[in-house]
């Protein structure tokens, strides 16, 4: 870990301005992913801006009946919030399926969205990785890729996004609120926050340098049966092989987002039109452009079977 200077920011605007005004600065909130990566010098900030003092740790109801989740709301608190449990069950479930009790106590809403891939080739700094070292190549392609993405991949990167929470938020049509260094704010639909790898997998989100997430807004509840099903080898404390976030209405319509299959939460609105036809039809559309490897081709039937189970339970 390289030396860094450290400050505690007093306001979101000040934090964003400090980030833009300081070379190689990073925000730190929970720190559970950033410090992990700093120890390996995969992340090498020269300056850390601690944002934990910013009053962004509340969950408030919005005027249109939704919820505004402060960027610093811890995963534990978000999952346990009575309104989230009641109206956004898929989000509670996704959060509780992630990491461990200790990590959820520290990890924040914004940090969870921005966590980086757990690709083992990204983590081993001796090996090529376009995400870690642009232009060096992708060692996962042709390597051990059982955990990797099957859809939306590129020749430069087949990493997955590791978040469970983000998959549920994608299904909920969440909107990410930010403040930029110049003090202006904007709202980014979560569908536009995360990027596919393309030929620049090192750029993972649409955030600008210094831009700080301040909140995530959930639209008013959509009801329906909500489920988050995470499939993994180990029963707990493991990343998803495949996960399914689903909201299914009585009339058979609904929403589906997948985790563990792409560089971002994977949702194809057009596929949802096929919901009344069953899981096979939906996943056929979700994976229309899939390019699995030999190691991870199982994810296609697995996702279909998992979705089928989720739909069956939702309709029961």
């Amino acid at each position: 870990m390289r030396s860094f200077s450290y400050e505690r920011a007093a306001s979101p605007g000040a934090a964003a301005a400090a980030a833009a005004g300081t070379a190689n600065a990073k925000f730190i909130a929970g720190g559970t992913n950033l410090l992990d990566l700093m120890k390996l010098e995969i992340e090498t900030p020269a300056h850390l801006i601690d944002v934990n003092d910013l009053a962004l740790d509340r969950i408030e109801e919005t005027a249109d009946g939704g919820l505004r989740i402060g960027a610093l709301v811890r995963n534990t608190d978000l999952a346990a919030d009575i309104r989230v449990r009641r109206d956004y069950g898929v989000l509670s479930r996704a959060l509780l399926a992630g990491a461990s009790g200790q990590l959820r106590n520290k990890a924040t809403t914004a940090g969870n969205l921005l966590q980086r891939t757990r690709c083992p080739y990204f983590y081993d700094t001796n090996l090529p990785c376009n995400k870690r070292k642009p232009g060096s190549g992708c060692a996962a392609i042709g390597g051990f890729s059982r955990q990797h993405a099957v859809v939306g991949v590129s020749d430069a990167c087949i990493a997955t996004h590791p978040s469970d929470m983000a998959v549920a938020m994608r299904a909920l049509d969440a909107v990410v609120e930010t403040v930029r260094p110049d003090g202006t704010t904007r709202s980014i639909p979560i569908a536009e926050l995360h990027r596919l790898p393309g030929d620049s997998p090192e750029i993972e989100t649409s955030l600008e340098p210094g831009e700080l997430i301040t909140a995530v807004v959930l639209p008013k509840p959509v009801g329906g049966a909500q489920a988050y099903r995470k499939v993994r080898d180990r029963a707990s404390y493991a990343f998803a092989l495949v996960s399914v976030a689903a909201i299914v209405q009585r009339d058979g319509t609904g929403r589906v987002a997948l985790g563990g299959v792409a560089h971002k939460p994977w949702r194809v609105e057009a596929a949802e039109a096929k919901l009344p036809d069953g899981a096979k039809a939906v996943t056929a559309r979700l994976f229309a452009d899939a390019k699995p490897t030999k190691d991870n081709a199982y994810k296609l039937p697995l996702a279909e079977r998992t979705l089928a189970a989720v739909l069956r339970e939702a309709r029961a």
């Binding site: 090996l127 060692a139 390597g143 051990f144 404390y237």
Partner: peptide, 28 residues
Amino acid sequence: MEDLVVDKRHGLFINHDLAAYEVPVHAD
């Protein structure tokens, strides 16, 4: 679950930490 996966091109066990080399947890 336990499987030190060999990357036969680079000659190493690629899943070389406790997140990637899974051992049983309480829930198992």
